[in-house]
């Protein structure tokens, strides 16, 4: 077999495999859409479940998930961004930083159910928040923090050192260099990483199971100490433990479709925002 043919075969295999990945994604999306689109209606999106969750909509769960996204962002963004700035711009490459980095990676490897139990023990019980948005947001925030740190660090590392040197050579301090040169230049990528990490947590079930999620709670939250319904948990409930599983099957697909749509919207807006922001400098 000559080189040319061998190369063609190899590339054909690679191409088919990468197409298969895309194919699986479209399969899932198509399947969920096909099964779920039927129940999607204005009423489904804007009313609470009724009749033992066999009828009505999922509005409280949508609101709950949006609250948790905002809450966990408020926890993870400031902490994650500041510690990434510290490790990548200030701390150099000593033992302490390497230790922090390894621990951050370990944190990212902890199963999310463990975060859920930890959150229940610390925020719900010890700190006495009870099942609440604040307990759930803190738990989800901790879960997503390693991702925020890593994407922010990568965005900062992508900024060439020549910018920093140019700034120092003009008499700028380290703080000025970081805040006026490095952060603005890294901003498009940082913001993208943040939005993507938020998309990731919006689908998490285990961490909210014991910290915030309500089985059935038709009214909307009135403070950060309220319990809320959330899309992933609601999906789990009506798919496996509802009062009439057969009757609620289409609603489960509808809920899944709404959850996927929220994540997709978040991801697409991330890439739009990044394109808009990077155009300013290019």
């Amino acid at each position: 077999m000559n080189k040319q043919i061998r190369q063609n075969i190899a590339f054909t295999v690679f191409r088919l495999l990468s197409l298969a990945v895309v194919g699986i994604l479209f399969w899932i999306l198509g399947f969920i859409t096909y099964k779920g689109i039927g129940v999607i209606s204005w009423q489904f999106l804007t009313t609470a479940p009724t009749d033992g969750m066999t009828a009505g909509g999922i509005f409280p769960a949508i609101v709950g998930t949006l609250c948790l996204i905002a809450g966990s962002a408020a926890v993870a963004f400031p902490l994650g961004i500041l510690s990434a700035i510290y490790t990548s711009e200030y701390a150099g490459d000593g033992k302490v930083v390497r230790f922090i980095r390894i621990m951050t990676n370990n944190l990212a490897g902890i199963p999310s159910i463990v975060f859920g139990l930890f959150g229940m023990s610390l925020f719900v019980n010890t700190m006495g928040f009870g099942d609440s948005i604040i307990a759930g947001s803190l738990t989800l925030g901790l879960l997503t923090m390693p991702l925020v740190i890593r994407t922010t660090e990568e965005a900062l590392k992508a900024i060439p050192d020549t910018f920093r040197q140019g700034s120092y050579a003009l008499g700028a301090s380290k703080l000025q260099t970081v805040s006026r040169i490095v952060l603005p230049a890294a901003f498009p990528n940082i913001i993208t990483g943040l939005i993507l990490s938020v998309g990731r947590i919006s689908g998490e079930t285990a961490p909210i199971l014991f910290t915030v999620a309500a089985y059935f709670l038709p009214q909307l939250p009135d403070s950060i100490y309220s319990q809320v319904m959330a899309l992933p948990y609601h999906l789990y409930v009506i798919a496996v433990s509802g009062t009439d599983l057969e009757a609620t099957r289409p609603m489960a697909y509808g809920t899944a479709l709404v959850l996927i749509a929220i994540v997709l919207i978040i991801n697409v807006s991330a890439s739009i925002i990044r394109k808009k922001l990077s155009k300013r400098y290019a």
Partner: peptide
């Protein structure tokens, strides 16, 4: 002044 021109992204 450096070897490679290094204007800031501004």
């Amino acid at each position: 002044v450096f070897q490679k021109p290094n204007p800031f992204p501004k």
